[in-house]
Design a protein around this nucleic acid. Structure first.
Lengths: 130, 130
DNA sequence: CAATAACTTGACGTTTACGTCAACGTCAAT
DNA sequence: ATTGACGTTGACGTAAACGTCAAGTTATTG
């Protein structure tokens, strides 16, 4: 029993990125798929990693930051200072995310205000030529 | 009565960006301060714009997107298709922000899980050598 | 008046995150 | 045996968002 695997283009399709992108992530040390000869073979673990990479990007992490988190998470399982460092980084990031979330709320509030103003303006115009 | 104005370095200090950055925003059509001879003079309106630019950036807008929003907002006051376009863009961005917000919540949840695992691991280690 | 500080434009450099060829390997199907 | 789909490694290109000089201007202050 060898488990489910994926080709590079399968993953590319599924996550709507190019194969170039996936190889690039490998260059950056974010993925390390096995090989069958030359060809890359991706396990479910690799697939999860890719998901994490993309989610990390969506919340504004750089590839380098993502890599650092991966490295720490991989290496931290046994070493106390590493674990402490990991927790520190996570806390910091959590705080940043909270600030980002606040920003987003503010902007979304402003957007809805502006939009309702726009819509009022359109209503006036529509009413003026019946 | 001429109103409060600011120099480029005042704004740079206040918002913790370089003067280069502020001039760059002007190159990109995001700011257009008046001049006293050569020197740029910023009004409160310019200051507000800069605030909006920086907030836009924090939520992941590109300078180009920010510029488009400014342009639309400036030009849209009287023209119906422009207003509709403006509303469309705002709706789209609102949706993106909502997705980003969801992502952030997911990641923050994961972070707190991982962190509590780390802390448990540390407790064990601490307990093992009294 | 000379020095200093603050400002200007312009040009080139840098980093991140890929895109875009080019040239070649491999395997299945015709 | 060739075609076509899929994969591979380089190498170079690019867009965004500034940083970093360089070289000159203007204002003010001792």
């Amino acid at each position: 029993m060898q488990g489910v695997t994926f080709s590079i283009s399968q993953l590319a399709q599924e996550f709507d990125v190019t194969t170039r992108t996936i190889r690039f992530y490998e260059d950056q040390g974010l993925l390390e798929p096995q090989r069958d000869g030359q060809r890359r073979i991706y396990t479910r673990r690799d697939r999860v990693r890719l998901m994490l990479i993309l989610r990390g990007k969506r919340i504004g992490l750089s590839l380098l930051e993502i890599r650092e988190l991966f490295d720490l998470y991989d290496a931290a399982s046994n070493d106390e200072p590493q674990l402490r460092e990991f927790i520190r980084i996570l806390s910091r990031k959590e705080q940043q995310l909270q600030e980002q979330l606040d920003d987003i709320r503010v902007v979304m509030g402003e957007i809805s205000q502006i939009r309702s103003q726009c819509e009022k303006a359109l209503d006036k115009q529509a009413g003026s030529k019946p």
